[in-house]
């Protein structure tokens, strides 16, 4: 049975001589992907008469609109966002300073997080740019992750029927994710 001895040697060689060297599979615990995702957010282009109710002849000092952002409280991302950088880019050709407030709301419409900025007035109808950046981290991110909606509230100090120009917003968010 010399042949079977040979076979034993072969199998043994294969079993015990094959191994994995100079590797550290514990490193698997350290694997973390950190994608940075750029995504558009809301935008608007509102003319001055949005702030004046022609039917009643009265100014609308504060206007508010809301959109759902369902993805914010989705299971896929909850807990994985490390940081959000909001970027709001206003162009205002109305000769008024605006106050703009962004509110995040949960499903019961309770405000979870607020951002607020002033938009510079135009001097002579030439558009003036105002860039507002807000970086949200740690607990505040958790608050936003628990939200479902975003409201944008625009306040003009005074308006009348003859006011002209437009206020425009373009916005995006950068989500810093780790998973």
């Amino acid at each position: 049975m010399r042949i079977s001895v040979l076979l034993q040697i072969f199998v043994t060689f294969f079993l015990f001589n094959s191994c994995v060297k100079n590797t550290d599979f514990e490193q698997a615990n350290e694997i973390a992907f950190t994608p940075e995702i750029e995504a558009n957010l809301i935008y608007f282009d509102l003319s001055a008469n949005t702030f004046f109710d022609a039917n009643n002849g009265t100014p609308d000092i504060t206007i508010r609109d809301v959109t759902e952002l369902e993805f914010l409280d989705s299971e896929e991302i909850t807990g994985n966002i490390q940081k959000i950088e909001f970027f709001f880019d206003f162009n205002n050709s109305i000769q008024r300073v605006f106050n703009v407030k962004f509110e995040f709301l949960d499903k019961d419409d309770v405000v979870t997080y607020t951002m607020e900025t002033e938009v510079s007035a135009s001097n002579s109808g030439v558009p003036v740019r105002t860039v507002y950046i807000e970086v949200v981290e740690s607990q505040d991110v958790r608050a936003i992750e628990g939200s479902r909606k975003m409201a944008a509230i625009i306040t003009i100090p005074e308006s009348n029927a003859s006011l002209t120009g437009t206020i425009k917003l373009q916005s995006k968010a950068t989500y810093f994710i780790e998973y």
Binding site: L41, Y43, F44, D60, I63, D65, T67, E68, L69
Partner: peptide, 23 residues
């Protein structure tokens, strides 16, 4: 092609439904 969500600020009276932008 996705541009984001455009808010149009409709003139709404109390109780009126908001525009379901996301849907």
């Amino acid at each position: 092609s996705l541009n984001g969500i455009e808010l149009v600020y409709p003139q709404v009276e109390n109780g009126e439904e908001l525009i379901p932008y996301y849907d």
